[in-house]
Nucleic acid binder design. Structure first.
Lengths: 108, 108
DNA sequence: GATTGTGATCGCAATATTACGATAAAAGTA
DNA sequence: TACTTTTATCGTAATATTGCGATCACAATC
């Protein structure tokens, strides 16, 4: 297999998993952090900051765009990437909804 | 390839990515939520709650245990799984450290 | 000592991910 | 039109992940 059975899980669980995937690779964490702190924005600048080939960075950007957490604005010959504020907020809320509902137990 | 170049990223970025992986699959989100809300604890109960085979659930539990976000206590013939509070807190802090440092921009 | 209940592990198949060189695409510039 | 710059995409290779049936391991119980 290798294919996740998304259809048997709730939409919320699938969405949380998808948003978590955005952060589930160190390069993507680095990209998101650079964009969030506005230390970079243009694709080429991100490539300069990251120890990865241009093709690889572009691929990660594509995945982040697919998830929706970033958006790109073409500014020939450059492309400027930015955090999608609404989705960023969605991530905060969904992660919070899971992480904040932990009640310590004495079960084990 | 298929192998992440962890050595070229910071420890923090790698750790965030690893913790995010815990949430990067809907089954694991469901497991973590069940444990956080204490609606299940024993492995068998988790299997009953999830639409996956026992072997698959066990594998996800192993991965969560490897990451450290859950711990298991053997209680023959059962095994009781619980959230590792310290790591749960670590996740909250690290995710927060990224998600809270977003300053809206007017770049694009 | 055989049986039972519970969970871990093995082995396999299928798909996904990561990485990168090479090349294409797009739009401006000479 | 040719050239340059920047980014996307293609193709490929290697490794990782997901899923499950079958089996193993362990301790309790009969």
């Amino acid at each position: 297999m290798g294919v996740t059975k998304t259809e048997v899980f709730t939409d919320e669980h699938n969405r949380i998993a998808e948003l978590a995937k955005a952060f589930a690779h160190p390069a993507r964490v680095a990209i998101l952090q650079l964009l969030a702190q506005k230390k970079a924005c243009v694709c080429g600048d991100l490539v300069d900051e990251l120890p990865l080939a241009q093709a690889t960075v572009s691929q990660h950007l594509k995945e982040l765009k697919r998830i929706g957490i970033i958006k790109g604005e073409i500014n020939p010959p450059r492309v400027c990437y930015c955090i999608n504020e609404a989705v960023w907020q969605e991530a905060r809320e969904l992660f919070g909804s899971v992480l904040d509902t932990f009640t310590p137990n004495n079960c084990c």
